[in-house]
């Protein structure tokens, strides 16, 4: 196919006269970060805007509360796994600047986890604290979910430059909690499903893969 016939001449020239890979590596990391962050914002807003749209247009199905709980929970887990993929991705692609988007991904995980818990406390239980406490104590899957959320709070609170500077080495060990959170979140999912474990299996395999990819990094130390 001749791209030239579909493209304005100046774009064609700029893109192909230099060679694509050359062009890409010529872009400064700063520009890359800015574009990637914009894309993450866009991608992260789509699921929540979709829920708002479906809610307004009566498209959330027979059990809208369950729909919102499932959706926000799934997206929190997705952002958690995507943020965990940054380190192995940096290693594989040799693009050190990728680290700059990890915080944003982590904060979106926190945002969806908060939406998830809000839909549970408000839409599902109408802030009936007696029932909520009973539910948390009696049902292991709710308990591990609650624990996972509580553990994300200190991480979100220390996700700024100032905290990094103040905590120094301790910041790194504090943020290792993310692995504990991931395991608790996956347990939450496993124990929640009645019989069909397909989805928890998929997410667990992805998590295991992300851990295995860290192996060379850990053994180097």
């Amino acid at each position: 196919m001749k791209w030239g016939s579909y493209m304005p001449a100046w774009i064609y020239r700029k893109t192909f006269s230099m060679g694509l890979s050359q062009r890409l590596s010529a872009i400064s990391p700063k520009t890359c970060i800015r574009w990637l962050k914009a894309m993450i914002w866009l991608g992260a807003l789509v699921p929540v805007l979709r829920l708002v749209y479906l809610g307004v247009s009566d498209g959330l199905g027979a059990n809208p509360v369950e729909f919102i709980e499932r959706s926000t929970g799934t997206w929190a887990l997705v952002f958690l796994l995507v943020s965990l993929s940054i380190t192995p991705l940096r290693q594989l692609t040799q693009q050190a600047w990728l680290i700059a988007v990890r915080r944003l991904l982590g904060l979106w995980m926190f945002a969806y986890a908060c939406l998830h818990v809000t839909s549970y406390l408000w839409l599902d239980y109408q802030f009936d604290w007696a029932d909520i406490v009973k539910d948390i104590i009696k049902h292991p899957y709710v308990l591990v979910g609650a624990a996972a959320l509580l553990l994300t709070v200190p991480l979100a609170a220390t996700s700024n430059q100032q905290a990094i500077r103040m905590l120094k080495q301790r910041w790194k060990s504090l943020h290792k909690l993310v692995y504990v959170i991931a395991i608790l979140a996956l347990l939450h999912f496993w124990w929640l499903v009645k019989k069909d474990v397909t989805e928890p299996v998929i997410y667990s395999v992805v998590f295991a893969l992300l851990i295995v990819l860290r192996w060379p990094l850990l053994s180097k130390k």
């Binding site: 369950e66 599902d124 009973k134 009696k138 049902h139 292991p140 899957y141």
Partner: peptide
């Protein structure tokens, strides 16, 4: 009699809407 996963003391009535509670 509680279930290991689900609260059995209350229920969500399908069709009651987003803010109706249990």
């Amino acid at each position: 009699v509680d279930h290991p996963r689900w609260t059995q003391s209350s229920e969500k009535r399908i069709g009651s809407g987003l803010f109706a509670g249990r």
